[in-house]
Design a protein around this nucleic acid. Structure first.
Lengths: 396, 396
DNA sequence: CCTGCTTTGTCCTGTCAGTGGAAAAAGTTG
DNA sequence: CAACTTTTTCCACTGACAGGACAAAGCAGG
């Protein structure tokens, strides 16, 4: 099937498409209230959008006291693909043009197996979604990778945890395979965009989104836009020193935040505690599974295990300390905590909050919510869909 | 004398004014090369600007191989006032419309004497500059204060080191007194704008500007724009924890960067070292002056005093450690070090560089210059002039 | 069902910003 | 002085857009 080739011809059309994306089906009259255009001009632009097929008529709206207005909506057949490649698993989802998730699958996979193997997996997952009747094809795809990206080209650069990906033309290759436009970004940035679009960060202009998974990263949103930095490595807070002369880190330094708290560090600490006989709960789980992960620690903590709680608390303290510094520096309006370890829940959040509220100045923390992400694993794929839709819904 | 009342009527005119401000006198033809407008349209807008008096004819340009072009320039009588209120001194300068400093005076004054006393001083300094024939009046003024500012209103909020200023309507009051538009900002932000306009940060989109004076602050520039944060306290890095369980700080916490290194901390450490007999050089200076400041430490270091050098080095290490974190987080294209302690020169810079290059990831530091500010004490006043000119040279 | 009011959609004209070509004006080069 | 450039002005043409007039559609109340 031929997919969308049309693009908005001007800024007004782009604006209208985004209004329809973010606000769902809408009447012409309501659109007129939200956009600064005369009725005549609006009618012309809507007419042109209808001609392109990007937008379709959608029945009559409820009356607002007079003649009823005709609703319009984004073409219901439009489909975006959102891909979130994590360190140890892959999420793929299909959305409609309003970025609602229609189907979502998750598969474990080690990113270190390299781009070729991962791509194969991603494509087969996309094919599976297509086969299930959710999409006949994709009008665009967004993809997130766990490392820095040279954004304009869509190419990973010097990614520490994914050797073999350096310089791999992700955007080009995926675009080729799927036959549609593709945008690539860091997975943390996509999570931030997801929470901004559909999660807790709606209507916040400046915020931080801290993702604690296998590693730790931070999405930075300034004035509604993601800040990627000069080389695309902004938000790489995992290697900020949290403990002077602390544990050795894979990066060669000592005391990096990531070495002291992250999915990987937490798992290692848990195994150690189990082996030293500090926690019967963890030891039992280690016995059963042969390994431990953040999920086990969360379960043990939920069961009241003191060691597990301590691990979480200490990690939260470390993380909170680093975040406190970032809050002083950046003065965000919101801090979102997300990623694999959100399962640790309130214990973690409380530890982080304590540190931030204690260490940052009152002016910066006075009205600063620190909350868990609302979308969990869908944040990344929604962010990915948002990324490509922002691209497509902008003047050609 | 009546001053400039005219403002650019549209974005084109604003654009032209900024080109003339940043590039100096220019021919119509050259302007045409820099702006995306047809010759006819350009001629119309220039004509209108000439009518308003904001811009005047300025003789003939050199030939580029054909008919010579008529030069135009910003009205030579335009004057901006730049005010930089530091913790312990005040800088006031007059600039022309191209933001060249025509006159600059500096007076010691403790900001804690309160807004009324400080204002009196500022106005008398401005009057002095006017009396010396540099200006008949001011077309706009920018002012920087050493604390957070609610930017749109131009009002300091909860400034830790300047009690009595909280909520004082700086913008309103100064505008009233001077009879011209006024904009207020944090002094560190103005320093960043100054270095961006006329210093080392020309042509860099994302950079950090660390000012080490009585306290420590950091100007953050994202995409050419200053980031002020949700409550105007962005860049307040003086109270980031640099030393766990370190020295007590005025803010109530322990180990704040500012408590370990800043103009004030350095002076205190120097006195202590002198009294403990660790440094003959510093002791002698303490004897002579009755007090020590960063300048004394710089002089002692220049004379080869080991203790002074150690103080600087250790401070640089602490600062570098914090900056390393910020570099990982923000991924700037440049880091500028400025403020009173730039006199400490290369020793300080070397220590900072060592820490940053060691602790941040290669991708972020690979092509990251860390340099001293170029403008010294004029950075702030130039930034102040730039602030108000940006405001005035924007569509009404 | 009919009347008056409101909202929505369409049509049309006037205005204004802006482009691009033509030609005049002013210089340069040989 | 002739041929060629560059700059500037002039002018007609285009397209974007606003806003008014009017028709269409719906509501409320008699």
């Amino acid at each position: 099937m031929r997919r969308m080739t049309a693009r908005p011809a001007n800024a007004h059309q782009a604006r209208l498409l985004r209004l329809l994306r973010d606000g769902g089906p809408n009447s012409r009259a309501q659109l007129g209230d939200q956009i600064d255009l005369s009725r005549s001009k609006l009618a012309v632009e809507v007419e042109r959008l209808l001609e392109t097929g990007l937008v379709v008529a959608d029945g009559l709206a409820a009356s607002r006291g007079g003649r009823r207005s005709h609703n319009i909506r984004l073409a219901p057949a439009l489909r975006f693909l959102g891909v979130d490649i994590g360190a140890t698993s892959i999420d793929v989802a299909v959305t409609n043009a309003e970025l609602e998730v229609l189907g979502h699958i998750n598969q474990p996979m080690d990113v270190r197996e390299g781009p070729v193997a991962v791509f194969e997996q991603v494509l087969s997952m996309a094919a599976k979604l297509r086969a299930s009747g959710l999409a006949e094809g994709f009008d665009g795809a967004g993809i997130g990778v766990p490392g820095p990206v040279r954004f304009p080209e869509g190419v990973p650069v010097a990614p520490p945890i994914m050797p073999g990906w350096d310089g791999f033309p992700v955007r080009e290759a995926l675009s080729q395979e799927l036959g549609c436009p593709v945008m690539v970004d860091n997975d943390v940035n996509l999570m931030a965009m997801g929470e901004q679009h559909a999660g807790v960060a709606r209507s916040v202009g400046d915020f931080l989104c801290v993702k604690i998974g296998t590693g730790i990263g931070c999405g930075i949103v300034v004035g509604g836009e993601v800040h990627r930095g000069t080389t695309g490595s902004a938000g790489d807070i995992g290697h900020i020193q949290a403990v002077p002369d602390g544990r050795p880190c894979a990066c060669g330094n000592r005391g990096c935040l990531e070495a002291h708290f992250s999915g990987a560090a937490l798992a290692r600490d848990a195994v150690e505690a189990a082996q030293q006989g500090l926690s019967a709960e963890l030891a039992a789980r280690l016995e059963t599974n042969g390994a431990l992960s953040a999920v086990d620690v969360a379960a043990a903590a939920a069961a009241g295990d003191a060691t597990a709680l301590d691990l979480i608390r200490e990690g939260g303290n470390r993380t909170g300390q680093v975040i406190a510094g970032l809050v002083s520096f950046f003065n965000p309006g919101l801090v979102v905590i997300g990623g694999g370890v959100t399962g640790l829940g309130h214990t973690l959040l409380a530890a982080i909050r304590t540190q931030v509220y204690r260490q940052s100045l009152p002016l910066a923390t006075g009205n600063l919510p620190i909350v868990l992400g609302e979308l969990g694993p869908t944040a990344g794929v929604i962010g990915a869909a948002r990324l490509i839709s922002d691209h497509l819904f902008s003047p050609a």
